[in-house]
Amino acid sequence: MPVSGLKHAGILAGGKPFLLIIIIVMQGMITHAQCPDVAAVFPKDSIIICADTTYKLVLPAKPGISYTWNTAETANAIDIHQSGKYWVTVTDGACTPVTDTVFILFNSLILIPNVKDTLLCLNKPAPPMQAYGQNLVWYSSPTSTDGSHTAPIPSTADTGSTYFYVSQTILGCESPRAKVIAEVIDKPSFDLGENIIIPCGAPGVVLQTVAQKYTSYLWQDGSSNNEFLATEAGKYVLKAENICGRLIDTVETVLCNTRCLNFPNAFTPNGDGRNELFRPGAFCPITKYIFTVYDRFGRQVFHSTNPNEGWDGRISGKKADIGTYIYYCIYDDFMLKRQLMLRGSVTLIK
């Protein structure tokens, strides 16, 4: 208790000096400098806690100070399991009790980073994986504990998909992990095959290839499927394209009664530069080939095993007579997949 003193000196009767000391007790001057301050109980009005954790709210344990929480607990620390409003009343002896409030938020709303899957080309250099967020950490699996702040660079040594996982940390809380896919593809690859026969009585033949992911297809008529119904004899072209390249392939179809060789029924070896040779028109590969021409008396006037050669209308260097001649041709038909023998006649015209 604070006190104050007064001193007074003098001389008593008889000539003796004296010293008077007066002590005064100063009532009603107790200082409250050490009493709890409502502003100092909870330094912050709100506290954000990471989801899936348990938080302990702790106040100082001091002699003579008691706590009463809204949860009815009286210890200096309580466990917090859910978001909400919490308050405590602090009593310290002769001090006026003070009450303070704090909001606890379990942050379960941390969003995963923004990610975008990556499409890569076989055996081409790959850039680092990309994601967008704060304080990113990359993982090799959904449950691995070893993360890296450096974005991984996927391998392009083989086709297929590789999975990566990335999280972001906000206010000390780590988000769930987002899956990011790096997929490696090859340039288009297909083969329409050899020339195709449209079977007799059939509406057509289906030209097709196995569809590759992320690849666009375009036929000669502008259609964009990976297959096409060919109903007529002719040439069909398919173009395939993706980020790694493009490929174009062509196939011809013929009707069931179409042969690789077609012979004219007349020719005019007169030196005008048109129809000078008698030979077949070939629109597919010819392997085995024997071609012979005879006159009306059965005498051989021309013979060849080369489909590019033709009879020029001469016999032993002299111009042959105008008239009809007979020919035979034996060859392996590429379209019909069998050996054929053709017999016919041709007229030599001057």
Rank of each mutant, 00 (worst) to 15 (best):
F228S: 02
N262E: 15
G10A: 10
N262C: 06
F283T: 07
V166A: 04
T31R: 14
V346K: 02
D52K: 15
C329Q: 06
A9T: 12
A39N: 15
T215W: 03
E241S: 11
I198H: 01
T53V: 05
V346E: 04
N114P: 00
N257C: 03
H303E: 13
I30S: 08
S148M: 14
C284A: 11
M29D: 06
D272W: 02
H32K: 12
I47L: 13
G273V: 11
A178Q: 03
N76E: 01
A151I: 12
D45P: 05
V301G: 04
I21E: 15
H149V: 15
A182W: 06
L229W: 00
S155G: 11
L119T: 12
I47D: 01
V88D: 00
A39C: 02
D312Q: 04
G245C: 03
K56H: 08
V115E: 08
G317V: 01
A202K: 11
L255W: 02
G14H: 01
G14A: 02
L348Q: 03
Y165K: 03
K44C: 00
Y331N: 02
P17G: 08
N306S: 14
N70Q: 00
T145Y: 13
I196K: 15
H81S: 12
T215P: 07
K85E: 03
T209N: 02
S83F: 00
A126C: 07
M29F: 01
S140F: 14
S161G: 02
G93E: 13
I78H: 01
S141C: 09
D321I: 08
V251M: 02
T215A: 06
I80K: 03
I170G: 02
H303F: 13
K318H: 10
P128L: 12
C35W: 03
L229N: 09
P269Y: 04
F190P: 09
V115Q: 08
Y289T: 03
I47N: 02
G172E: 07
L109W: 11
L277C: 00
M335H: 11
S304K: 06
V102Y: 05
K116Y: 09
I196N: 05
K350Y: 06
A211K: 13
G28F: 08
L119S: 10
V3L: 14
K56N: 09
N262F: 10
V251T: 05
S161H: 04
G298E: 05
Y327L: 04
I24Y: 08
G10E: 08
A9E: 14
F278P: 05
H8E: 13
K124Q: 15
K187G: 09
V237T: 14
F106E: 11
A61P: 00
I290V: 11
I181C: 03
A33V: 14
I104G: 06
Q300P: 07
D92T: 00
S189G: 03
V210A: 10
P269R: 03
P154Y: 12
P142L: 15
S304T: 15
G28Y: 07
L336E: 09
V166I: 03
A151P: 12
T305D: 12
P125Y: 14
A40W: 04
F103S: 13
G245I: 02
T68S: 00
S316P: 00
T159C: 14
N76S: 11
N225A: 12
